[in-house]
């Protein structure tokens, strides 16, 4: 009885280590090819269009509302201390350091990460990946590399757009609605936000980009090996759910990690 449960626990541990190892090798393979040009520029452009350009509208709206909420909350809290002058800096710092990169990444997981995973999972299921290998085309090069490069380009851009939309949202609520002076909103922000803060947001968005594509493509690519996978439509749907959950958690965990290292 006890032996059995210990065995089960041990097997879980071995499975975990195996999967982690596979993920590491997978990422290494992808980056090995990322750093070996030439790349198909048009496939990269297509992926930027999918991951980046088509997420813009969603990102603008989420950014706008996030900024508005931040300003609303911040205004009511700061009003009690009579220091509504700090509103700009609160909104700016919050957006640029934390909310911009994190919320953008979460939106991209929902829009593009799940789709990427399902796409590659279906390609695996319908033997398209085998077909690629049989044509002598490296699937890493053909499928993963454009996604990685596109995400690394798109996520920072989306994050910047989110930040600016958020700053604008904060302006609308704080200045237009609540009557904080325009000068103190912007000047307060300019003074408190440093280049280092912008850098932090930038680095975060790069790390998130790699995380998102890594988890999504890995789960799809090894659909047939993974415990939760298995073949068929059900396997694809399970793996896609896994991707969304795991990458969201990883985003928040790594956000904390990067924060402690860089602050």
């Amino acid at each position: 009885m006890i032996k059995e449960s210990v065995t089960r626990f041990g097997r879980k541990g071995v499975d975990f280590i195996e999967t982690t190892g596979m993920m590491g090798v997978f990422l290494f393979n992808c980056f090995y090819h990322v750093f070996r040009p030439p790349h198909k520029i048009f496939s990269i452009i297509k992926q930027i269009h999918f991951i980046g350009a088509r997420s813009t509208i969603v990102i603008v709206f989420t950014g706008l509302f996030t900024g508005m909420v931040l300003a609303l909350q911040g205004y009511h809290n700061l009003k009690d201390f009579g220091s509504t002058d700090l509103l700009g800096s609160a909104v700016g710092l919050g957006l640029i350091q934390e909310l911009g990169p994190v919320l953008t990444a979460l939106m991209v997981i929902g829009r593009a990460g799940s789709a990427m995973c399902a796409e590659i999972g279906i390609m695996r299921h319908s033997e398209q990946i085998d077909a690629l290998e049989c044509m002598g085309i490296d699937p890493y090069r053909f499928l993963m590399v454009p996604k990685f490069i596109a995400a690394i380009i798109s996520l920072p851009i989306l994050t910047f757009i989110f930040d600016i939309a958020g700053i604008l949202g904060g302006y609308l609520v704080g200045v237009v609605l609540m009557g904080v002076s325009e000068g103190s909103y912007f000047q307060g922000m300019y003074n408190s936000v440093d280049w280092a803060d912008v850098q932090l947001g930038f680095v975060k968005s790069l790390i998130f980009a790699i995380l998102i594509v890594w988890i999504a493509t890995f789960k799809g690519y090894f659909l047939h090996i993974l415990k939760s996978g298995g073949h068929g439509a059900e396997g694809v749907s399970r793996v896609t759910t896994d991707t969304v959950v795991l990458s969201s958690v990883m985003i928040l965990a790594s956000d904390y990690l990067v924060g402690t290292i860089m602050l």
Binding site: M123, S126, E127, Q128, D130, A131, C134, M135
Partner: peptide
């Protein structure tokens, strides 16, 4: 050349 069961077209 290989032709797969379901065609495996992209």
């Amino acid at each position: 050349g290989v032709s797969f069961q379901g065609g495996a077209l992209f």
